[in-house]
Nucleic acid binder design. Structure first.
Length: 615
RNA sequence: GCCUCAGUGGCUCAGCCGGUAGAGCGAUGCCUUGGUAAGGCAUAGGUCGGGGGUUCGAAUCCCCCCUGAGGCUCCA
């Protein structure tokens, strides 16, 4: 909720000139230099300012908002400089003089930092002044500087309560006997009891080594470049989620990545994010880059005529990209980025009951992605105390749908837009969670964005909205897969699921005379939608085997004189490290079975390894 | 953002009580025409993250900035 208190008042005058002369000191006068006793400014935007009592509660925000307003006006005019003039008479509830001085000084600093020519008239003196107002329509404006603060900031927060929820019973996390070490790690991390080993998560090195992605120093921190193999995996994951949600009836849309903060609903939803927004100013707009697809989705829904017969209704978008201005020290690898791609589905439901049914079905969808991606998720369900009291039995049943014990967080009161959410996390090599899929029941945005549907009684109703990212961000999925591979190294060779691996089959010809045969064989696989390449480099077989292992190729076939006449091949199978004799069709069938139901894209690399580029 | 640490050929690193760079892998060329995790020889490749300072002289010492890692906090 937004609170609006008393606020700073400013009067803005676009003047031909202003000059002032100090007369005598008051008790609260600030010390000034001789030259400040009398000054004149030409073509100035004069900002008469009264700092109010309430402004003392959040001086930083007041300064920020005042500066914003001043800049807005300044850009519309052709003034040369800004003059901040303390003017107590605008207010009947003044702040303390010290607070006022600090705020005025900060305003000047902030404007100067942004490159404006700005002066401040001495505080606490009786002054005479002359001003010549230009008199055009915009030359006299007054503004109230609104101090907004979200309810999250006010008063001490009561801590949440945490339980392990196992078969409908609640356990104290400290006394619970964990069956899964991942769950134990997740709980430790959630409750702030993680011991850190101080290492870099291994996926960062792997993503570079395998030519998937890398940092882009010429962008902002936390924005990546993706090489062809990484791009392929991203695309396959995008296809995967697209199929997943459209099979369930969601409708894909695409919406802008930036929004006008002049729109009250946009602004209200954005404020929830506080400082983590990327903002940009154009000539007369204050814009933000989206941090999720909510903005576009809600705007579509609020402009759509809906009746109860349409609901539940889901629209889906893959946000290439979403932007969050994460703190510098927190940005790392694929785990925490400032620019990332997130599948984002919004389902609008008639009422809480319908949203709870949908929520249940989306739990199954999220759990399914864990299986398809071969990633182990642990789950956290977070509910407000009120919601739990009213829906205890449903919460217990929903938790069971996860199929294993979950962590339950009970928030004493609602502090976000949701009243119930489920988060799924993979655990990385170092035992830290990577939060991925999420489902949230949103009771606030329907009203904020003026989304309505016609109910059975022909009355307008406000719907409940569910936010869901079935896999979490694409980058985090890849991060989790790579972390998994680092964990796997201990018992089996690291690899990706076959449907996601760039080269699925590699042919190693022994000598040059086997090349034609190798390429012809490769064609057969290609025809069957299998990504295949040929190591045609002039290297020994040993070296080619080694290099195929480095590329995590799941199936490797060596062809030489023996194979030219035979229909059978010795296939090196990475997963089991066995050599198995198979004919072509057996291998094709095996891969088809393994990748059944998963999306396919062609290999975006030259089939000849001799022609490949290293990134 | 704050605290701690780091930044040397494409990659991994050595050199760092000041005297203007070195290895292995990789790359390129030649030789080798091969049967399951590095065949041989040779060559090229570095404004030592950027800027400033101290000095006769700085990769090396000092300051600022950039980038990266870990922690604090939050999240997809």
């Amino acid at each position: 909720m937004i609170q609006i208190g008393d606020k700073m008042r400013i009067l803005l005058i676009h003047s031909n000139y202003i000059n002032y002369k100090t007369k005598s000191k008051t008790k609260i006068a600030e010390e000034i230099e001789e030259k400040q006793k009398s000054m004149r400014f030409e073509n100035s935007l004069v900002v008469f300012t009264a700092v109010e009592k309430k402004d003392e509660e959040n001086p930083k925000l007041v300064v920020e908002n005042a500066v914003k307003e001043i800049k807005d006006v300044f850009f519309k005019l052709k003034a040369d400089n800004i003059v901040i003039y303390p003017y107590a008479h605008l207010s009947s509830s003044l702040s303390s003089p010290d607070a006022a001085k600090t705020i005025l000084k900060e305003m000047k600093k902030a404007l100067a930092r942004d490159g404006f020519k700005v002066e401040r008239v001495p505080f606490g003196w009786y002054k005479s002044f002359d001003i010549s107002c230009k008199g055009h329509p915009l030359s006299e404006l007054s503004r109230n500087i609104v101090v907004e603060k979200s309810s999250e900031e006010k008063e001490e927060e009561e801590p949440s309560k945490f339980y392990i929820l196992h078969d409908g019973e609640l356990y104290n996390p400290a006394e619970y006997t964990y069956q899964s070490s991942d769950m134990e790690k997740l709980v430790a991390s959630e409750l702030g009891k993680m011991e850190s080993t101080g290492e870099e998560p291994p996926h960062v090195k792997i993503m570079k080594e395998k030519d998937l992605a890398d940092y882009e120093p010429s962008a902002d921190v936390g924005h990546l470049r993706w090489y062809p193999k990484g791009r392929l995996i991203r695309d396959l994951l995008a296809d995967y989620v697209y199929n997943l949600v459209t099979d369930r009836g969601a409708m894909p849309v695409e919406t802008p990545i930036m929004y006008d903060l002049g729109d009250e609903a946009i602004k209200g939803h954005a404020e929830k994010f506080g400082e983590r927004q990327y903002r940009m100013e154009t000539k007369n707009k204050n814009l933000m880059l989206r941090y999720a697809c909510c903005f576009g989705a809600f705007r579509i829904l609020s402009d759509t005529f809906l009746t109860w017969k349409n609901l539940p209704l889901a629209i889906y978008e893959l946000s290439t990209y979403s932007f969050r201005l994460e703190k510098r020290g927190e940005v790392v690898g694929l785990k925490r980025l400032r620019g990332f791609t997130m599948p984002d589905m919004h389902t609008i439901c008639t009422d809480l009951k319908q949203s709870m049914e949908e929520f249940d079905s989306q739990i199954s969808m999220c759990a399914q992605t864990g299986e398809d991606l071969q990633i182990n998720y642990e789950a956290i369900m977070r509910v407000t105390d009120d919601f739990l009291k009213d829906n205890r039995q449903w919460v217990m049943n929903s938790a069971k749908k996860v199929g294993k014990p979950i962590l339950l967080e009970i928030l004493p009161r609602r502090k976000h837009y949701w009243i119930c959410k489920m988060d799924f996390a993979a655990i990385d090599y170092l035992g830290r969670p990577i939060e991925n899929p999420t489902i949230q029941i949103d009771v606030e945005s329907g009203e904020r964005f003026d989304i309505k549907y016609i109910g059975p009684d022909e009355e307008e109703q406000t719907p409940i909205i569910i936010h869901c990212s079935p896999t979490g961000s694409i980058e985090r999925v890849i991060g989790a897969l790579l972390e998994n591979s680092a964990i796997q190294t201990e018992d089996k060779p690291p690899m990706l699921p076959v449907w996601l691996t760039p080269t699925q089959v590699r042919i190693l010809p022994i000598a040059e005379r086997h090349l034609d045969f190798a390429f012809n064989l490769a064609k057969e696989f290609k025809k069957n939608d299998i990504r295949i390449d040929v190591d045609d480099r002039q290297e020994t077989v040993g070296k080619k085997i080694r290099s195929a292992a480095g590329d995590w190729v799941p199936y490797v076939i060596v062809v030489g004189d023996n194979e030219l006449d035979s229909k059978e091949f010795t296939v090196n199978i990475r997963e089991t490290q066995e050599k198995v004799i198979m004919d072509k069709n057996e291998l094709i069938e095996r891969i088809k079975a393994e990748t059944n139901g998963m999306p396919f894209r062609k290999l975006p690399l030259n089939i000849k390894l001799s022609r490949r580029v290293q990134f």
